[in-house]
Design a protein around this nucleic acid. Sequence first.
DNA 1: CCAGACGTTGTT
DNA 2: GTCTGG
DNA 3: CCAGACGTTGTT
DNA 4: GTCTGG
Length: 217
Amino acid sequence: MCGLYRLVSPPEVVRERFGYVEEERFPPRPLIRPGEPVGIVRLEDDGARHFRLVLWGLAPHWMKEPPMGRRIINARAETVLERPAFRGAVRYRRCLVPADGFYEWTGPRGSKRAVLFTLPDARPFAMAGLWERWQAPDGGEIETMTIITVDANADVAPVHERMPALLRREHWQAWLDTREVPAQEAVRLLAPAPDGMLKGRSVGNPLKGAAREPRLL
DNA sequence: CCAGACGTTGTT
DNA sequence: GTCTGG
DNA sequence: CCAGACGTTGTT
DNA sequence: GTCTGG
């Protein structure tokens, strides 16, 4: 699955690769965790790509409580068209999640170890995501996101059964363009990465001693 | 009809 | 909001 | 995600 | 088992 990832590439590199016209500031982060603000790229009303910071953990608009606790950090590609929690988002609110590494865990509870998967050149790639906007009674808005998972490819399978859905660059626009590309068609782009594409490196427990980003709530 | 859930992962 | 279970 | 904690009182 | 803090 994908419950921890990384984006340490300089903002200029991410901007150049993803081609957004506007961005919210973000520092390079070796550990990006559920509940934290994370960067997504989405098409907005001007038809252009924008980089926005939203909270990791999907909170559909009909949730009663604000998304304080843990929410839905992953969505299975196989069920994303059917589940009430995802149906609206996969049709109207698809996004890219820039990353240059994701972690998968292995080992027994209490002594888990992580493997960091990257491209050989450590360049940023796009994970497939969905986002939501939650409206508070007082009018405040909170935006959230979730990362779509698929079966592990041969690189990841020794460590874990699932992995984030990575989108080929030539598919980025179709995934983002919810006006032109219907959900059923977009979901066909979600597949395990080609075998041999990713490089894995054992990193122990990267959470040990790590400081966390400030919460937004 | 109403009430309650609505998700994934991993673990038991 | 929409579906499922009772 | 994992690791580690997991209370009371008083009030609704 | 479930929540919180990192």
